[in-house]
Design a protein around this nucleic acid. Structure first.
Lengths: 143, 143
DNA sequence: GCTCTAAATGAAAATTATTATCATTTATAT
DNA sequence: ATATAAATGATAATAATTTTCATTTAGAGC
């Protein structure tokens, strides 16, 4: 279950951040897209509603949202970093190596492994990222 | 089991790439480090033996090696991209959120999940990346 | 070993992504 | 309504990566 826009703004306020129109616009843009978007893509999307917004503000907002774990940051091939609304505890992606499509899937397959790694390495594990790389149906056909 | 330097150079030749001293130096540097290194870190390491090498050549070599899947590319927090010798089929990392230490661990925990995802989504899965984010023992103590 | 040629290199410039600075504006507690 | 700390946007700075291009070189063929 993805976080709602309302929960996100509530969490921002709870943490003492002001709720500016710019922040609302960024949250709106990210919440209304099912996909992972890069900072630049998001900037362009936000500007449709809010032409005066600065790229820097988008960066700053994403930074805050990611710290609060309200959005999910994904690092992948080439030009790094993209974001999507967080689905708490789930960071499971299926990424198409050709077209870059990202599908999220849910599941808690890793609890046991996580416990074992804690024991064996002394790491304190905070989260995980599981990505499968492959080719989506469309790109398979396109070959 | 990590790929040996010899296997890497053999694969390069097999694919029609020339074996230049620069490429040997980059391969040597990456093979002799147990850690993930960023391009810049690697550049500095290579320059100890080969002071005249250009940063561009390091980029180019890493690019080729990554394409041939002879090294493993890791995208993680902040200043992206680091590399280590590939251990075919294993892309399992334990990353410290504080100091950035990366520990590789082995295991084949995902085969079953992978099969299920193929069935359900029609993706053709080529590989995966499993990262646990947490804090290593040193950084836990440092708090 | 010597020659030739396509491939590789390195210097420099160009792009792109991200972060810092700072004067101005604004959300919100009072 | 007002005061003020926080947020914004323009600009500049930094960092990471890629492109360009003239020069050099690995290695195939003799």
């Amino acid at each position: 279950m993805r976080l709602s826009e309302k929960k996100i703004t509530a969490s921002l306020k709870r943490h003492g951040y002001k709720l500016t129109p710019q922040r609302r616009a960024v949250i709106g843009a990210i919440a209304s897209s099912p996909d992972h978007l890069t900072t630049t893509a998001l900037y362009q999307k936000v500007r449709q509603d809010h032409p005066a917004i600065g790229l820097v503000t988008v960066y700053r907002t994403l930074d805050i949202l990611a710290r609060l774990e309200l959005i999910c940051e994904l690092h992948a091939g080439g030009s790094c970093r993209s974001y999507t609304i967080a689905a708490p505890g789930h960071h499971h992606h299926l990424i198409c190596a050709d077209c870059g499509e990202v599908i999220d899937f849910s599941g808690h397959y890793l609890t046991e492994l996580e416990a074992r790694l804690c024991r064996e390495t002394g790491f304190e594990i905070e989260g995980h990222l599981l990505e499968f790389i492959g080719r989506c149906q469309d790109c398979q056909r396109a070959t």
